[in-house]
Design a protein around this nucleic acid. Structure first.
Lengths: 103, 103
DNA sequence: GCAAACCAGTTTGTAATGCAAACTGGTTTG
DNA sequence: CAAACCAGTTTGCATTACAAACTGGTTTGC
């Protein structure tokens, strides 16, 4: 493979590059299924922000969102999709290369 | 030091977190003084984008911008400040921690 | 000698974000 | 049965990143 240009190396997936979403996926990569309130507590995001970042991740096909009930209280369960796992892996690799580039 | 929260770990410097600016600093960290046209070529940004990202970096105190002439043609020379070097180092360290966190 | 093309950038306009605050639809408590 | 609470969603706004248009000067063609 020919040497990559800087522009290519730094062309990061913007969905994952947002710290809040990276943080969400980081939690998900460890536990693989969580509810909204657990994420809320782990990430210290506001409910509104967590909700909208999850929507973005869902639209991008990175996470799956399932609604259920805990007794009569609604509950939202979030898990990472296969695509999400692959994208996160790719992002990590790319960022590793960037960090090396800056040494 | 107490264990850092995820929110703290992922609280990245937004000035540096933007890929285009990270790329600019990456070039600067290697050569330490460049002109506008060299950056333009290395980064493959448009002139407008390069100009505005440089302004942001200058406002943030990360780079110093000096105007001179090459014969009668105006020339812009950019270099990284000490603060820029330190901030970039800090960003790299923080991102290393994040990548570890996601392993 | 002056119009057209070129050079080195800067400014402006626009669409897309990220965040906080307000809202929704339901449940529990006093 | 009103007030407080729960689990989220929607809305409004200020900030952005990018592209396109602009600026102020220089060189080229005729």
């Amino acid at each position: 493979m020919a040497k990559q240009s800087l522009a290519q190396i730094f062309d990061l997936d913007r969905t994952l590059h947002e710290p809040a979403r990276l943080m969400i996926l980081c939690v998900l990569s460890a536990v693989d299924e969580v509810d909204f309130l657990y994420l809320l507590q782990e990430t210290e995001l506001t409910r509104g922000n967590l909700s909208s970042h999850l929507s973005k991740l869902e639209e991008a096909g990175m996470v799956a969102i399932r609604k259920s009930f805990q007794g009569r209280i609604p509950q939202t369960i979030i898990s990472m999709t296969k695509e999400g796992q692959l994208s996160l892996l790719a992002y990590r690799r790319q960022m590793q290369i960037i960090l090396k580039e800056m040494e």
